[in-house]
Nucleic acid binder design. Structure first.
Length: 256
DNA sequence: TTGTGTTTTATTGCCTCC
DNA sequence: GGAGGCAATAAAACACAA
């Protein structure tokens, strides 16, 4: 071998600071290594270091620029990839022969194809997750709206009760107690119906809002009704607003 | 025509497995 | 320790608007 020659792959020399690489036949990684003699049969060499930087030299003699595969080659590779996205050595050699490519090129194509597939798969997974998130978000929003509506209903009914209690003559207090209690029961019924309605329409997601955590499906509200019954019995001389007033002042916000 | 963004081909370094 | 896989990246090829 002439020691005055420099043995570099031309395209790689230009691109990668004169590493001896390029067509897959020879690399620093030790894969697909080719002897200098073999390499010299396939590659033109520079007769002097100056030629390394001579553009005309490349135009005339550059053996291979990066070339795109033909559509037929790509078609066959795609077909093969569909069958099996990993490439065992025998299949690699066969494909390379069939396509007139270096085995290394086939391997690289599969490598890049797997990377593209992975990216697409990530995009698909993202879309599925996003759809799921959007759906949950819209359920949540509707629950929040219902909650707000119920709150405002409760406030207006409370105000009504206060006005009624204020205008009531003293002697009618006992009757008033009964009246407000009746009204309270009406309100409780409205709310309980609304909640049952919500549960039917939104399923388990909705039940989480008022559920007391017990497995039998009973809600916090059912306990309230039980409390109401006992309080009602023990509180006949109580305040005008009865249990509902107490609930509003003390415990009702627990619900919301 | 040219500037710019995207896609494709190829390399490099690191990691794992046998 | 070698072979092969993957992530990151470079660079050529290509597409396309201005």
């Amino acid at each position: 071998m002439d020691s005055g020659h420099i043995f570099f792959d031309t395209s790689t020399c230009r691109r990668n600071n004169m590493l001896f690489l390029g067509n897959g036949d020879f690399s620093f990684r030790g894969r697909s290594m080719m002897s200098m003699e073999e390499s010299s049969k396939r590659r033109p060499f520079f007769s002097s270091p100056d030629e390394l930087f001579d553009d005309e030299y490349y135009e005339d003699q550059l053996p291979e620029k990066k070339r795109r595969l033909t559509s037929d080659q790509v078609h066959l590779l795609e077909k093969s990839f569909e069958e099996e996205n990993k490439l065992e050595p025998e299949r690699k050699t066969q494909l390379a022969k069939k396509l007139g490519l270096q085995p290394r090129q086939v391997a690289v194509w599969f490598q890049n194809r797997r990377a593209r597939w992975k990216t697409k798969q990530l995009e698909r997974d993202y879309d599925v997750l996003k759809a799921s998130y959007d759906s949950l978000l819209s359920s949540y929003d509707s629950i929040v709206k219902d909650n707000e509506k119920l709150k405002s209903e409760m406030v207006s009914l409370h105000e009504k009760l206060q006005i009624e209690a204020k205008d009531m003559p003293k002697e009618e207090t006992i009757i008033s107690d009964k009246k407000t209690d009746t009204l309270s029961v009406d309100i409780a019924e409205i709310i309980s119906m609304k909640i049952v309605e919500d549960r039917v329409s939104i399923g388990s997601v909705g039940s989480a809002v008022v559920d007391d955590g017990s497995d039998d499906g009973t809600s916090y509200l059912s306990d309230v009704f039980v409390a109401h019954e006992s309080q009602h019995q023990n509180n006949e001389e109580g305040e005008a607003l009865g249990w509902w007033g107490n609930m509003l002042h003390n415990g009702a916000p627990v619900l919301f």
